[in-house]
Amino acid sequence: MTRSLSFPRIGTTAMLFLATALLSMSIFTVDPSDALPDLQLSTSQISLEEGSVYIDEMVVINVTLINIGSDDLFNVSVGVYDDDPGDGGKLLCPEKRVDVGHYNFTLVNFTFKAKEEHRKVRTIWVAADVENEVNELNENNNIGTAQLRVMLRETMMFVLTVVGRGLLLTFSSLSLLALILYAVGYLLNRFFPEKEKEEEDEEVLVEASTSDASNEQEEIAAASAAVAAYKRGV
C-alpha cells in the first residue's frame, strides 16, 4: 500500500540551497569584529522523511543547522521534543552534539518510533542549545517546528468503530434536531398561530375600510352640500 505525505516536504536540496543562500548573505552582513558564532535553526530547516506515519513506524527528521556567525561552534546540543522545550516538552530521542564551522552548515538526522501517545497531528519541536551553553550573537533563532501525523493502522475494528460512531452521532444529532424543531414549531404555532401575519392583514383591512368609509362619508357630505346649495339657488 502506498502512502502519500500529508504535509508538504522540503527537499534536502532546497534546504541546502537555503543554507548556502543564508550563509552568503550573512558573510556580507555580519561585522567581522563580532567574533561570535550564531547558530540558526528555523522551521524551514526541518524536514520529515514522512509527514504521516503509522503507530510503531520510525519517524526520521532531517535538520540543517547553520552557523551564520564568524566563529566556529563546538559540541552544541540539538534535540527533538514533543512540545515546546521551554514549556515542559520532553525529548523524543537522545540529544545529539554537533560542531558547525563559521559560515557553514551541517546536517543532523534524528529517528524515533511513533507511539500511541503521539497519535493525531503533532507539532514536533527541534531546538538547539536549549541550556544556552554557547554564547551567540543571536540567542533567539535556535528553534523550529514540524507537523507530524501519527495514524492508527486501518484495522477492521477501527474502521467499524469509525462507521458505527459516525452513524450513531449523525443520526442522533439530526433526530434530536428534528424533535426540537417539532416542539418549537408546535409551541410557536399554538401560542402565536400566525398571529403577526393575520393581525397585520386585519389591520391593513381595517385601515383600508375606515379610510374608504371616511372618504365615502366625505364624498356623501360634499354631494349633499352641493345638492342643498343647488336647491337654494346658489
Partner: peptide, 29 residues
C-alpha cells in the same frame, strides 16, 4: 421536520464508500 431523517439517510452512503475505500487500500484519511 421528520424529513430531516432523509438527509441523514443519504449520508449512510458515505460510510459505505469509506469502508470500500479502506478495502481498496486507501489510508483512513
Amino acid at each position: 421536520p421528520k424529513l430531516i431523517v432523509l438527509g441523514f439517510a443519504a449520508q449512510v452512503g458515505i460510510f459505505f464508500a469509506f469502508v470500500g475505500s479502506i478495502l481498496l487500500g486507501f489510508t483512513t484519511g
